[in-house]
Amino acid sequence: MVKKSIILITIFTVLIVLPLIVPRFYVYLTSIILLTGLLATSLNIAIGYCGIYQFHHAIFYGLGGYGTALVITKTNLPYYIAFIVGPIVAVLFSLIIGLICMRLTKLYFGMLQISLGSLIWAVVYRWYSFTGGDDGIHGIPVPDFIADAKGNYYFTLFVVSISIFILYRIINSPFGKTIQGIRDNPIRTVSLGININVHKLIVLLIAGFFGGVAGMLFVVVDNAVFPDMMFWTYSLEILIMVLLGGMYTFWGPFIGAIIIVTLRTYLGSITQYWPMILGLILIFVIFFLPQGIYALIENFVKGKAHNADS
């Protein structure tokens, strides 16, 4: 336990001093990794901890981004309202989609969510006058203090840290244990007197909200939104981060995000076959690494400790 907190503090310290020592591009990359890590972690709350087949999580990321971007570009409201509106839009759609999909069993929940999500994508894609269509919206202004790479990096670090802390608390709360019970055995939870639909809906709202927060952060870091943010291949990408890192672990998805974002940044620029690489990674993980990388690291560390003991 003590060890874990030492590791966390070390990582946090490194993250704080990072912009002072590395070039601007890496600061930007780290910002993207941080917000994507939050995105993957928020998906994991639904799929890993509650067993809900949230197959189109990118929708909430996109909605958070578009919500923020539209308030900034179309209204004169202050910035902080834009930063709040994004996640709220994501939550509202989580609620609507959730209420519709919850009528179905697990499998069909996922199918319908993909379909409804694609509808939202299609509307955003076609609604030129409002959303900018397939171009999206670029050059979105943000307040001066977070306009440069360092500024938006610290803003991202701050928001992501708080969000991750909240999510961590939720997972280890009675509510968090309850949703894990729902995942493991829904029938049993019902006969314990737990209303599983209400719990699941709340999980969807939480996942949607923090997905939206990640989208809002993307606007701050990249000053742009575009429909690809909410295309289904991006949902697949987030799913892969979760699975690659480790679905039933808290930090796994973050590790997955680090790996996938880094790979995409370097490979995505030299090949046009990034989706195929993603697909192959996914297939590899399914067959050879179903527990995810985090479990691998954990076992390795434990094994070392064990060896040292004996």
Binding site: F55, G110, L239, L243, P275, L278, G279, L282, I283, I286
Partner: peptide
């Protein structure tokens, strides 16, 4: 895992 596999295959 089976569902995710079909995602992966679609992508490939």
């Amino acid at each position: 895992m089976l569902l995710l596999l079909t995602f992966g295959l679609a992508s490939v």
